[in-house]
């Protein structure tokens, strides 16, 4: 069994406390130990009552809904993380002892919001939107010394954390953060928050794809690509993105797709490679930065 060397959390179950102020029924059960006498119907009823009283029924229902919403590839691992997160936050918020400091509380809030945001990939839009709402509520909940609402500082901090965990180089995502950040003391409305989160996750995916693209271009052994080839790919990408310039016409997607199709890309690569002049190499960072810039140019700044 996985033995966790974690210090024993407070004896009172936080979850129980939240739901039922009276812990008495649960406690009396545990006193009985395991009654081998009553394995009959009474026991079954008692078990159901017990599960309901200590909140297991509700907890599992919520977990199952989350699983169905996110449809993870590995639902069991998903559940392990789900309950781990729940366990981490309950002793702190409901347990005895002195209240955690303001800074710690803030970190916990951020962690919880991040966890909700990552439950579902942004392509599962309904699930993602739900999770964004929950994250927003996590962050904007009022506290002892905190007024309800989400301020710009927390929002920026969250964006930074997402980008940092997304393993995208800082200089690549920095322009985006500059564009969608809010001022520290500004209140962040729900719409802005949602758009910001979505943009950030989409950019991270975009950068990951660009990274994969660069791996195809780079010369084996050397960690660089030919500048002419790299530039040709970037130009093609730019052309494709430019084609659908803020028009909501579906045809622009088709056009962009065709510009990125193998034919047109091959042509561009061919043209680039025929120029015989020796060129300087292009590094991965440079390629990613330029590719991300194309994306970020399309993002409307906040405010």
């Amino acid at each position: 069994m996985a033995a966790l060397p974690v210090p024993v959390p407070s004896v009172k179950m936080a979850a129980v406390e939240k739901r039922r102020p009276a812990v008495a029924p649960a406690a009396s059960f545990t006193d009985n130990g395991r009654p081998s006498v009553s394995r009959a119907q009474a026991a079954a009823e008692n078990e159901e009552d017990f599960l309901r009283q200590v909140g297991v029924t509700e907890m599992l229902r919520a977990a199952l809904l989350k699983v169905l919403e996110a449809r993870p590839e590995e639902p069991i691992a998903f559940l392990a993380h789900y309950f781990e997160n729940m366990g981490l936050r309950s002793p702190a918020s409901g347990g005895a002892g002195e209240p955690p400091g303001q800074l710690l509380l803030q970190q916990q809030r951020l962690g919880r919001a991040l966890w909700h945001l990552r439950l579902a990939h942004h392509s599962q839009r309904t699930a993602f939107n739900n999770n964004v709402s929950v994250a927003y509520e996590c962050l904007s909940a009022g506290g002892r010394r905190k007024r309800p609402g989400l301020d710009g500082r927390t929002y920026s901090e969250l964006l930074k954390r997402i980008c940092r965990d997304g393993e995208a180089p800082e200089e690549v995502v920095a322009p985006l953060l500059r564009k969608i950040q809010c001022r520290d003391h500004e209140a962040v409305p729900r719409g802005v928050f949602r758009a910001g989160m979505l943009t950030c996750f989409v950019l991270l995916d975009f950068v990951a794809r660009a990274g994969a693209l660069f791996r195809l271009l780079e010369a084996p052994g050397l960690a660089v690509a030919d500048r002419r080839v790299g530039q040709a790919v970037l130009d093609t990408l730019e052309g494709a993105l430019g084609a659908g310039d803020h028009t909501a016409v579906p045809a622009c997607y088709l056009e962009a797709g065709s510009r990125l199709g193998p034919d047109s890309l091959a042509l561009a690569l061919d043209r680039a490679a025929t120029g015989r002049r020796p060129s300087s190499p292009m590094s991965r960072e440079e390629f990613l930065e330029k590719a991300a810039a194309l994306f970020i140019a399309k993002v409307k700044p906040v405010g």
Binding site: P9, V11, A26, F50, L51, A80, F83, E84
Partner: peptide, 29 residues
């Protein structure tokens, strides 16, 4: 849930969330 019912003493000590965390982690492992 069955395991939880058989180990009621544990959950009053460690909490339900932790019980489930350990259960699902051990399933993964």
């Amino acid at each position: 849930v069955c395991q939880l019912l058989e180990n009621r003493e544990d959950i009053s000590q460690y909490g339900i969330a932790r019980f489930f965390t350990e259960y699902f982690t051990s399933v993964c492992q």
